[in-house]
Amino acid sequence: MNKEQINVLREVPEDQEVVMLNLLKYKDKVEETGLTGEASYKQYMKAAIPFFEKIDAEIIFFGRPLLTLIGPEDETLWDDMLLVKYKNQGEFFKMVSAEDYPAKLRERSLQDSRLIYCKSQTK
């Protein structure tokens, strides 16, 4: 995240839920541990769940994309995707800035990723 992106997210009203789409591409092997990136990410999720629970965030979906129905047929799919709903942007920032939040574990598990802020169109 760059400063401009952070500022845009901080401007989201406190009474608005924030949904984050995580697109994940795992490393084949994590040098520090010898684990696969997928196995290492599972460790991250286990360590991160208490942080989600502390702020009452909800994991809406965690799974693997299997097939592109509309779009380029030769496009490589992400390994996994994760949708997380937060009460508001403040709770998201509280979680990711918590002292023991396992951000390094997440980072070293991934070859590539996207974290995309999504806004509901139903409200």
Rank of each mutant, 00 (worst) to 15 (best):
P65M: 01
E31G: 01
Y101W: 14
T33H: 04
I49N: 04
F92A: 03
K42R: 14
E73D: 11
D79M: 02
A103M: 12
I60W: 05
K29P: 00
F93L: 12
L66V: 05
Q5P: 00
R64T: 15
P102S: 10
Y101T: 02
G34R: 08
F92Q: 00
M95C: 10
S97H: 04
N88R: 07
L82V: 14
F62N: 08
E32K: 15
S109T: 09
D80Q: 05
I70M: 11
K46E: 15
A48T: 14
I49V: 12
S97R: 03
L69I: 11
L105Y: 09
L105R: 07
V12Y: 06
V12W: 06
K42I: 13
K25G: 09
G63W: 02
A103S: 12
L110M: 13
I59W: 05
P102V: 10
L69R: 08
T33C: 05
D28G: 09
V19R: 07
N7H: 04
D56N: 14
S97Y: 02
E31I: 08
M81N: 07
R106I: 08
D79E: 03
G63N: 06
N88D: 15
L82W: 15
D100A: 14
E32A: 15
A98T: 10
R10A: 12
Q16W: 07
A47D: 13
Q16F: 07
K94P: 02
V19P: 02
N88S: 12
A98H: 10
L83P: 11
K27P: 12
T68I: 13
E11G: 12
N22L: 15
F51D: 00
I6W: 04
M81T: 11
L82Q: 01
G90K: 13
L24C: 05
L9W: 06
G34H: 10
Q111R: 02
L105W: 10
V19D: 03
Q5M: 11
I49D: 07
G90R: 11
S97V: 00
R10E: 14
V8I: 12
D56C: 04
L9P: 00
P65K: 00
D100G: 15
K46F: 11
Q5C: 06
A47W: 12
Y26H: 04
E14Q: 13
G37S: 01
Y101A: 06
L23D: 00
K94L: 13
L67K: 13
L9M: 13
L69K: 09
A47Q: 13
V84D: 04
R106T: 08
N22W: 15
Q43L: 15
K54M: 09
P65F: 03
G71L: 06
M45H: 01
A39L: 10
E73V: 05
F62H: 08
D15W: 05
R64I: 15
V8D: 10
D100R: 14
D56I: 01
I59Q: 05
S97Q: 04
L77R: 05
D28E: 15
M95L: 12
S40W: 06
G63M: 07
M81Y: 10
D100V: 05
F51K: 00
L77W: 05
I70P: 04
K29F: 05
I6K: 14
T33I: 07
E32S: 15
R10Q: 15
L105C: 06
L69N: 12
A48W: 13
F61Y: 06
L82R: 09
T33F: 07
T68P: 11
